[in-house]
Nucleic acid binder design. Sequence first.
DNA 1: GCCATACTGAGACTCAGTCGCATCACGCCC
DNA 2: GGGCGTGATGCGACTGAGTCTCAGTATGGC
Lengths: 150, 150
Amino acid sequence: MVDPTPFLDALARAGLRLTAPRRALAQLIADQAGHFSAADLVAESQARSLGIGRATIFRTLDALSGLGVVERIDLPSGEHAYVGCAPTHHHHVVCSRCGRTAQIDDAGLRTVVREVAQRTGYRVDEHKLELFGLCPACLPAAPFPLQRPA
Amino acid sequence: MVDPTPFLDALARAGLRLTAPRRALAQLIADQAGHFSAADLVAESQARSLGIGRATIFRTLDALSGLGVVERIDLPSGEHAYVGCAPTHHHHVVCSRCGRTAQIDDAGLRTVVREVAQRTGYRVDEHKLELFGLCPACLPAAPFPLQRPA
DNA sequence: GCCATACTGAGACTCAGTCGCATCACGCCC
DNA sequence: GGGCGTGATGCGACTGAGTCTCAGTATGGC
């Protein structure tokens, strides 16, 4: 993604202002190839001399993730990262080498959730599935799994 | 769980020493009804005047999670928490009200993972599924979903 | 019982994320 | 086009989780 308009559209549709820092950040996020952290954006904005405050970056990420156009993911390392995405219910496969992500829809998870609910007696209100591995581009370079296969 | 021996066994089997702080922490963790944070253990150990340092608590949690008898989960709020569990591949359903967790095995997720791999072309090496909702005990008290149903 | 060494507590440190506040500028309205 | 209310901003101080270092301690193999 290199086009920042989805982010700006989402802000506008939510009645939020399209300020210069937000436009710049939308572009910055759109330019990210894979997942990125708040710190990445801070560094990048400093590198490009955008003059955007740290707090503003966190606030904007917060706003965008509230709108569903940016999602926060928890990497296996325990770090937090963000990815730009469509505001629909979905999950991510994350490449552990290049950080690129692919969006996936339900993919049969609904059945799993229903089964878990039946077995445990819990009412499941929310779920989070994250998959980690290697993207097609990185696969040839690393023929052996880095972690236990899932 | 009120019996700390699984934690101690795991430490011993890994060739780690069974020190007084580790025994005390194993008991503390065994006493937890639901999920707990490192900060909870710090507070509890201060309350019980166990004299265990913060660093030791983090180190012990690290060791136990490395052995698979304690697992780190990411709550929807973004906080980290830990749960005691069996050292086998599994996932958790977490009660958003009382924090109690239930352990679930594959439950058909293997099929989902295989399908995702096929659709995206990624090789999936690792996955993480977390489910949040209400446990059977808390269900009667809260008839309506707090979050969007999954 | 001895001893190598794994483990410990204390406290300083780092780093992500938050908060308060004075100032700025977006965008609605005239 | 200009005025104005208010949402957004930057700054910098703050918080809290987690890490690191280091000297001292105690475990458990012999």
